[in-house]
Amino acid sequence: MLDKDPTTFSLLTYMWVFLLAMTGGLVAFIRRLNKSRKPLPLTEVFVRLLGELIISGFAGVITFYLCEFWDFDQLLTAVLVAISGHLGGGAIDRISKIWDAMIDKTP
């Protein structure tokens, strides 16, 4: 697994990963916004959206790296990246649990 390096992926690959993850984050944001009963000022909506997209992009990249490490099929990787983007911080929490479980198994 040492032959994989984050710098070997093309810019186009990273753009797709970010686009998929942020699209998932945008969908989650719109769904939450539609369920909201309290109207928010437009500037607050855009600030929250920006935060959501950043978190979703980060979750997508981390998921992409894990899928590459585990040699997942590219199509499955794309699906998992989009779902991670939709989960946003929830995906990061789940990945943290995987990390904790791996550390706990280390002798």
Results as ranks from 00 to 15, higher is better:
70 W>I: 05
18 F>Y: 06
79 V>A: 08
43 T>Y: 03
30 I>R: 07
17 V>G: 04
55 I>D: 03
88 G>W: 09
81 V>G: 02
17 V>A: 05
39 P>H: 01
70 W>T: 10
67 C>A: 10
34 N>T: 06
20 L>Y: 01
39 P>T: 05
20 L>G: 10
83 I>W: 02
42 L>H: 05
83 I>E: 02
55 I>V: 10
43 T>I: 12
29 F>Q: 00
86 H>I: 09
31 R>K: 12
40 L>H: 12
81 V>M: 12
30 I>A: 13
26 L>C: 04
27 V>N: 08
85 G>N: 10
70 W>R: 12
56 S>R: 03
53 L>N: 06
44 E>F: 14
82 A>Y: 07
77 T>M: 00
79 V>T: 08
17 V>S: 03
65 Y>P: 11
57 G>C: 11
42 L>G: 10
46 F>P: 07
57 G>S: 11
85 G>K: 04
40 L>G: 00
68 E>V: 12
15 M>K: 01
53 L>T: 13
47 V>S: 10
45 V>K: 14
54 I>W: 08
16 W>L: 13
24 G>V: 03
59 A>T: 09
80 L>D: 05
88 G>Q: 06
70 W>L: 15
67 C>I: 08
21 A>P: 02
57 G>N: 01
86 H>K: 09
40 L>K: 14
54 I>D: 02
71 D>P: 09
32 R>M: 06
35 K>W: 09
71 D>H: 15
24 G>A: 06
37 R>Q: 15
87 L>G: 00
79 V>H: 01
29 F>M: 04
37 R>F: 10
25 G>D: 02
55 I>T: 07
30 I>L: 15
75 L>H: 09
84 S>F: 03
56 S>M: 00
87 L>S: 11
73 D>P: 00
56 S>V: 13
65 Y>M: 13
36 S>Y: 09
12 L>K: 13
25 G>Y: 01
87 L>D: 06
31 R>T: 04
23 T>W: 00
18 F>S: 10
50 L>D: 07
18 F>V: 11
63 T>C: 12
56 S>G: 13
75 L>Q: 09
78 A>K: 06
52 E>P: 07
31 R>E: 14
24 G>E: 02
28 A>C: 02
17 V>F: 04
14 Y>Q: 13
74 Q>A: 06
60 G>H: 08
11 L>Q: 11
23 T>E: 01
15 M>P: 06
58 F>D: 09
51 G>R: 11
26 L>Q: 03
85 G>H: 09
69 F>P: 10
59 A>V: 12
27 V>A: 13
71 D>Y: 07
48 R>T: 07
39 P>R: 14
27 V>P: 01
81 V>S: 00
66 L>K: 06
70 W>E: 08
88 G>K: 06
53 L>V: 11
53 L>P: 04
50 L>R: 14
35 K>R: 14
72 F>G: 07
64 F>T: 07
45 V>A: 03
64 F>A: 15
51 G>D: 03
33 L>P: 02
48 R>N: 14
69 F>A: 10
22 M>C: 09
34 N>I: 13
57 G>T: 03
79 V>L: 14
74 Q>D: 12
74 Q>P: 04
32 R>C: 07
62 I>E: 01
57 G>H: 07
21 A>D: 14
66 L>V: 15
84 S>L: 08
28 A>T: 00
32 R>T: 12
41 P>F: 05
54 I>T: 03
59 A>C: 08
46 F>E: 06
44 E>Y: 13
33 L>W: 13
